[in-house]
Computed example of a mutant assay.
Amino acid sequence: MLRTLPDPEQAKPCVLVVDDDEAVARAIAGRLGRDFRVVGTSDPEQALPLAREQHPGVILCDINMPRMQGDEVAFALSQDPATAQIPFIYLTALVSPEEAGELDAVFGDYPAVSKSASTEELRGVISWALGLDDD
């Protein structure tokens, strides 16, 4: 009898992307898919149930969304013991990659990354949040 091999996709660190623009979530998934398992939702109200189900290592969340703003998503996640310890990073089009650092701690104690950041910068921020060495 053959032994079932583990799914290599499941072994990758999971990144949950919350953005009301599905194209943004797909683009980020495409950019990160080599190194991370990316799960996305365009409905911010699904962030908490998805985080509970998928156990992501980090959450990237848009700031400006209809129905539920990024800070409301961050607050909901912080109030749930199952998701409160997951690193949270704001994903924003409000600033350029060079200005993203200026948003750190503006919306709570969470860092921010520009949606137009390079793939390397995006990977670096995620690796930092996951506590991985980015060699």
Rank of each mutant, 00 (worst) to 15 (best):
residue 90 Y to M: 03
residue 26 R to S: 12
residue 9 E to K: 03
residue 106 V to W: 07
residue 57 G to W: 15
residue 67 R to E: 08
residue 83 T to S: 09
residue 45 E to K: 11
residue 99 E to I: 01
residue 81 P to I: 09
residue 54 Q to A: 12
residue 58 V to A: 12
residue 44 P to D: 13
residue 16 L to T: 05
residue 46 Q to V: 10
residue 93 A to Q: 11
residue 35 D to I: 07
residue 89 I to A: 02
residue 45 E to I: 07
residue 70 G to E: 04
residue 36 F to W: 08
residue 83 T to V: 08
residue 62 D to M: 11
residue 113 V to T: 05
residue 50 L to C: 08
residue 14 C to E: 03
residue 33 G to Y: 01
residue 91 L to D: 00
residue 19 D to C: 08
residue 37 R to P: 03
residue 45 E to L: 14
residue 26 R to K: 11
residue 43 D to L: 12
residue 10 Q to W: 05
residue 83 T to E: 09
residue 94 L to N: 13
residue 69 Q to P: 10
residue 71 D to L: 13
residue 63 I to D: 03
residue 108 G to P: 04
residue 32 L to G: 06
residue 43 D to R: 14
residue 12 K to P: 04
residue 82 A to F: 10
residue 12 K to G: 00
residue 104 D to H: 12
residue 62 D to H: 15
residue 40 G to S: 14
residue 84 A to W: 09
residue 92 T to F: 08
residue 24 V to C: 09
residue 82 A to L: 13
residue 9 E to M: 10
residue 55 H to L: 15
residue 76 A to I: 02
residue 91 L to P: 00
residue 50 L to W: 06
residue 68 M to L: 13
residue 104 D to F: 13
residue 99 E to C: 03
residue 24 V to K: 00
residue 45 E to P: 07
residue 27 A to D: 05
residue 30 G to Q: 01
residue 31 R to P: 01
residue 79 Q to H: 10
residue 112 A to M: 04
residue 110 Y to F: 08
residue 12 K to Y: 04
residue 100 A to G: 02
residue 59 I to C: 12
residue 80 D to P: 10
residue 50 L to A: 10
residue 12 K to R: 11
residue 83 T to R: 05
residue 21 D to V: 05
residue 78 S to R: 15
residue 104 D to K: 12
residue 110 Y to K: 07
residue 102 E to M: 08
residue 13 P to N: 05
residue 51 A to F: 14
residue 32 L to P: 01
residue 8 P to Y: 06
residue 25 A to S: 11
residue 82 A to R: 06
residue 36 F to R: 01
residue 96 S to I: 00
residue 103 L to I: 08
residue 32 L to E: 04
residue 24 V to E: 09
residue 71 D to C: 06
residue 90 Y to Q: 02
residue 14 C to N: 05
residue 99 E to Y: 07
residue 59 I to E: 14
residue 94 L to G: 12
residue 22 E to S: 10
residue 25 A to N: 03
residue 12 K to D: 01
residue 85 Q to F: 07
residue 86 I to R: 04
residue 51 A to D: 06
residue 61 C to R: 11
residue 45 E to N: 14
residue 61 C to I: 06
residue 106 V to Q: 07
residue 74 A to P: 08
